[in-house]
Nucleic acid binder design. Structure first.
Lengths: 228, 228
DNA sequence: CCGATTCGGATTGTATACAATGTTGTGTCG
DNA sequence: CGACACAACATTGTATACAATCCGAATCGG
């Protein structure tokens, strides 16, 4: 009798699917996204695919080159810095708000996220672990109950995934787990100051774990071409 | 011999044109944007129009209702608050950065913006004055040289214009002029602390000049139907 | 032998045609 | 007379066909 969900439109479904693949590093930066090929994969016409690609391009996950097609974006060094500066501006204050408002249910949900992340790491599913790591940040934004800021963070987290694909250096496995656990404790104790500070440092750590010396965006596509 | 500009694609041109009309309050919230009608106006097929509308929808300037068409967005009270909270998070720090980096040329450009704004006010072009007022904020973000954050602010400023259309209360004419002038002085003196503080207060003033007591978004469309 | 040029294939950009859905007006039944 | 049901219309959603553009390879000329 009731259809509260109007059934997600096709283009958004596909866009989300592609975004997930990008987030999990199954689609690497520079990969060409042919309209016809995607159309066959999803069993729809290019019309739908184009809409999905346009949406992803707006989120900077895909770069649309006129008359040349769509490619998984390759953020520049500068863009990488800017994304993390924007996150540093938004997320610590968001973590503070979340700590002030968090409920027991929220805490449980966050803990589940962390557990899932660990499970993915143990199973060797690095891509999925990275995605869940991003979801942890998003969950915090959601708890802060600021939809507009949450959307910005969503976009920044997704772009961070691309940046990590291109510039990740440290190979430490549980690099983030520690930071997320510390945040969890701060939330559990409703320590807003601590949560804000931990998030700030966490983002600085993330940034410093990247190798942002140079990269003209050419090497990445070359590696793609040669590797696969 | 040289075409450095690949000629803006048609959809973006139209999207910008519509965004400008919305920003200048020539298109009011709730206005229906028929695909065929727009197609005739711009002399293109619905394909192009749909792409433009999709882009505007992503920026929250247009609301796409499935199988029902596109309408100029009507931000809710909550959305209005969130937009200004996001601005309060981003713009003061951005103003600080701008103050630290600003050049003489930038100062001159900012002054021109203010002068244009005054000219528009004097000419009774309220819509254009509002647009230019937004451009002032954007120019500051541009000076801060953070493209990513600038994009966020661009979107927030545009949405603010919709919010003002729906919730503006104070009818004071030069409400903003004073604040912008004060900011100019802070920039001229490279006083980063002052610039940050002034921007923070300016945004609080803006927010407090709105009447955000209630409005379920239905009244707005009703007034639309009855008033005009 | 090397470089510029042109032709062919492939891919995207746009328009149009058709299908699906929502809305509105009318007619009938209670 | 009012409410419900149905049908005609209008608008959007999707697929397909055609045009424009770009890339690469083969060819021609130096």
């Amino acid at each position: 009798m009731n259809d509260p969900l109007p059934a997600a439109p096709m283009p958004d479904t596909i866009a989300n699917d592609l975004a997930l693949a990008i987030h999990e590093h199954r689609l690497m930066p520079g990969t060409k996204l042919s309209e016809e090929e995607l159309g066959e994969i999803y069993g729809v016409s290019r019309t739908i695919i184009r809409a999905a690609l346009q949406r992803l391009a707006h989120d900077r996950l895909v770069e649309l080159k006129r008359n040349r097609g769509a490619y998984v974006a390759q953020p520049t060094v500068r863009e990488a810095r800017e994304v993390f500066e924007a996150r540093a501006l938004l997320e610590p204050r968001t973590a503070r708000s979340a700590a002030e408002r968090i409920t027991e249910d929220d805490l449980a949900a966050l803990q589940r996220h962390i557990d899932e992340e660990h499970a993915a790491i143990d199973d060797g599913e690095a891509g999925r672990a990275l995605f869940l790591s991003g979801q942890f940040h998003l969950e915090i934004a959601r708890i802060a109950d600021q939809a507009t800021i949450t959307e910005f963070i969503t976009q920044l987290v997704a772009r961070s995934s691309l940046i990590i694909a291109l510039y990740w250096h440290r190979r430490g496995a549980l690099c983030e787990s520690h930071a997320h656990h510390a945040l969890m404790r701060a939330f559990a104790e409703r320590d807003a100051d601590l949560a804000e500070e931990l998030m700030k440092n966490h983002l600085l750590d993330l940034l410093s774990s990247l190798d942002l010396r140079n990269r003209t965006s050419a090497p990445a596509s070359l590696r793609e071409a040669l590797g696969a």
